[in-house]
Design a protein around this nucleic acid. Structure first.
Length: 763
DNA sequence: CGGCTGTACTG
DNA sequence: CAGTAC
DNA sequence: GCCG
């Protein structure tokens, strides 16, 4: 049961700040405790005891260490300072986002490590994982030996780093780690390169040129002094009450961020509002009222009021003073505060809590974990997803399913349900921003990775001893093509079904329609994931026993059609499906995955039929040298046969993974790709667009991060095109979609008109 | 060698 | 698209 | 920078 502080009660008990803001009496509930433990902390603490203790046992920690956790930091002060210098250096360089991240993790761990590092062996403790890599371990070793890290010493006073850090924080000390100034590494570097290196210079430039700053930068500049002040808990609570006052009474307002972790004061205020109805509209209405009341004093970001949006959000500055008149003996609340408000419908509440209650690294870690499990996790739910490389070699989401329901039936009411779904122990709030939770997630991920393919995914009803015997021939096939990485083994299954005839028996051969009687799915390694008989609702008019070998007794052992279909879809969804004449199977299953995911051995250009035709039996004999379907068919055997046929030509037929959009877009995209494939002449030598490609190589060489990735993609795509790019119209072709509509597009158009050299002269 | 969270704003 | 935020 |  959650602890809910109603408005009337909370105020009186808290000793009364004397705040009376008529018109802003909060109808909504505010969830926070005015003293001691917050409900979120309590929730976390209660749920934490089991798994946390386990983790620390594994970690080889004793209770003393645990007790220290949370109020340490000075234990490794000197080492921390060294790494903070290194972090500052890399954080000032836009070319080093990943090193920066790594150092950020290192610093986070050192700040919270419950023991002092005195020897190299300490690095073997699991919490020190990030310190135990190649470079970092060497640096720590150097520190233990000489009491300092030379590189850090050298970089510590690097004037460029110092200046850029100053610019990124508008000269405010202790910046970073609270909220952004809207001046990142790129802008700061630009300013630095233009000669702005000191605060007075920056100030002069800002004052003399009214267009120098963007709107958001201007807000952060104007309020930089107020925003840098910590907000006491008491004021956070008052502000939460104000916000609650402008939302419907059924809403719930929760204070997230450092407040929820018990901090005595906060850098900014992060509020999660859960309300029914159109969250976008509720958010807009609230912001409007707060602006009218002069509570909101600046806006940094406001979600457009899009009806039916999944969330509404507003970011900006606020001040209590207009609502809480100054009175002698009480704080006058004149400081402006950074406030974020996010509004979600109840179904996303736990996801939003998870996101806004955790630190960045924890969120990245748990989302990465979800991805590795075949899901994608965000503040707006959980979906099935497969990731891999598409045909252009870009890494990304190949397929994404609809929002998942909570299998526990609790409708994702708690964060715990999300952890449970992902197979993770509940990680308490206090461990979600200090590196400990991240370390636990990474440990879980590693454990998961070494676990064999999920056996609980398999659903096997003992069917027919022949399936084992018959398939043995195929199992002996060796050597199989080496298992390629990623999607080439994980994302592929093979399907085969057996049918019996139902309906009016007109011709004497079979019923007029097919009914599913047995379904089999095997993994890339040939293991049976599903094999079951299926009950047939209608009377069977033809068992086709010479082919299927099935009898009424077999079907009676089976599961219902609906059940079988669910199992099949669960195993096939988002995966490449191999089979022979799959159309029949999908028609009967009434399930139609996008064509880009299908590999039908009956129509494979690399499996040329021989004299005996292109039946599965003939192809197996011809290409695999194996006799199958000797007597009646076995769907496991047939699925394996199709799988091994596929694997025998996989490199030729299927060198790269399929491209897919999200569910809604999938069909359209699939159509595009099919058309593109048809339009495109048979593959010919590549390299037709070398000069264009080289242009993007040059751009890539001097770009960074996302921009660099983009140019590399464009270059690669241009090189691999089987035709000359001649007119801007060609850019409309789907295979060139990755060019986008921006600079790359413009450059290509210009180069087509003016020639490559002209364009490069300009650049 | 190449991936490293996911979403959404502003300019 | 690039930059930035959370 | 780290990891597989």
């Amino acid at each position: 049961m959650r602890h809910v502080v109603g408005l009337g009660e909370g105020r009186g008990g808290a000793g009364g700040g004397g705040a009376s803001f008529s018109g802003f009496l909060s109808p909504a509930k505010v969830e926070h405790s005015t003293l001691g433990e917050s409900p979120a902390m309590k929730r976390a603490r209660v749920a934490a005891t089991g798994p946390k203790a386990e983790f620390f046992d594994d970690a080889g920690l004793d209770d003393g260490d645990v007790a220290l956790a949370g109020k340490v930091g000075s234990l490794n002060g000197e080492l921390l300072a060294e790494f903070e210098s290194l972090l500052a250096f890399y954080a000032s360089k836009k070319t080093e986002p990943w090193r920066e991240r790594q150092y950020r993790k290192i610093v986070a761990v050192l700040k919270n490590l419950p023991f002092r590092i005195t020897c190299l062996e300490d690095l073997n403790r699991p919490q020190c994982a990030v310190l135990n890599g190649g470079h970092t371990r060497t640096r720590v070793e150097e520190f233990l030996r000489r009491g300092k890290i030379q590189l850090a010493q050298n970089l510590q006073n690097d004037p460029r780093t110092v200046a850029i850090s100053m610019l990124m924080n508008f000269g405010v000390q202790g910046g970073k780690g609270k909220y952004g100034s809207y001046v990142g590494t790129s802008t700061a570097e630009k300013w630095y390169d233009s000669g702005i290196t000191t605060l007075p210079q920056l100030q002069h430039r800002i004052e003399s040129d009214p267009t120098f700053l963007t709107h958001n930068q201007r807000v952060m500049w104007d309020f930089r002094s107020d925003f840098s002040q910590r907000v006491p808990r008491r004021e956070v609570e008052l502000i939460a009450d104000v916000i609650a006052g402008v939302f419907p009474s059924s809403s719930v307002v929760e204070v997230m961020g450092s407040y929820s972790r018990g901090a005595p004061d906060c850098g900014d205020i992060d509020l999660l509002v859960t309300c029914h109805g159109d969250v976008g509209r509720r958010c807009s209405e609230a912001v409007e009222a707060l602006t009218k009341a002069q509570f909101i004093t600046a806006t940094l970001r406001d979600s457009h009021h899009a009806p039916g949006a999944h969330s509404g959000q507003w970011m900006g500055g606020c001040r209590l003073a207009s609502l809480v008149p100054a009175r002698p003996g009480f704080a006058d609340y004149t400081l402006h505060r950074r406030l974020d408000i996010k509004v979600y419908p109840p179904k996303f509440r736990a996801f939003a809590q998870l996101y806004f209650g955790s630190g960045q690294e924890f969120n990245r870690a748990i989302r990465l974990f979800a991805t590795r499990q075949g899901y994608t996790l965000s503040d707006q739910g959980l979906r099935r997803a497969t990731r891999g490389k598409n045909e252009k070699g870009e890494y990304g989401t190949l397929w994404e399913g609809p929002l998942l329901e909570d299998p526990s039936g609790c409708n994702w009411t708690t964060e715990a349900s999300i952890f449970e779904f992902l197979g993770l122990p509940f990680i308490p709030l206090e461990d979600r921003d200090n590196g400990i939770g991240v370390a636990r997630l990474e440990a879980m991920a590693r454990a998961q990775a070494t676990k064999p393919a999920a056996e609980e995914d398999c659903f096997i009803v003992p069917t027919d001893p022949r399936s084992v015997v018959a398939a043995a021939n195929l199992q002996r096939l060796a050597p199989l093509p080496s298992l390629a990485e990623g999607w080439r083994s994980n994302g592929i299954v093979a399907l085969d079904c057996e049918f019996v005839g139902v309906g009016r028996n007109t011709s004497g051969i079979g019923g007029e329609r097919n009914a599913l009687a047995r379904a089999s799915v095997v993994s890339y390694s040939g293991d049976v994931l599903l094999d079951t008989f299926v009950k047939v609702e209608e009377p069977v008019t033809d068992f086709r026993i010479h082919v299927t070998g099935l009898t009424q007794a077999n079907l009676d052992q089976g599961i219902s059609f609906q059940e079988a279909r669910d199992h099949v879809i669960r195993l096939l969804e988002g995966r490449v499906v191999v089979g022979h004449s799959l159309a029949h199977d999908f028609k009967v299953l009434n399930y139609h995955p996008p064509a880009v995911l299908l590999r039908d051995t009956s129509s494979c250009p690399h499996l040329r039929p021989g004299d005996k035709g292109k039946s599965l039996k003939a192809l197996s004999e011809q290409h695999l040298g194996v006799k199958i379907q000797d007597g009646t068919h076995c769907s496991v055997e047939d699925a394996r046969a199709a799988l091994y046929l596929y694997r025998s030509v996989q490199d030729l037929w299927d060198p790269t993974p399929p491209v897919l959009g999200t569910s809604a877009k999938a069909e359209a995209l699939d159509k595009h790709l099919t058309e593109a494939a048809e339009n495109m002449a048979a593959p010919v030598a590549t390299g037709h667009n070398e000069p264009l490609a080289q242009h993007f190589d040059r751009l890539a060489a001097r770009s960074h991060h996302y921009a660099k990735d983009h140019y590399v993609r464009v270059s690669r795509t241009l090189r691999s095109l089987p035709y000359h790019l001649q007119s801007p119209k060609d850019l409309l072709r789907p295979e060139l979609r990755c060019v986008g509509r921006g600079k790359a597009h413009a450059d290509i158009v210009r180069m087509l008109h003016e020639g490559v050299n002209e364009v490069n002269k300009g650049a």
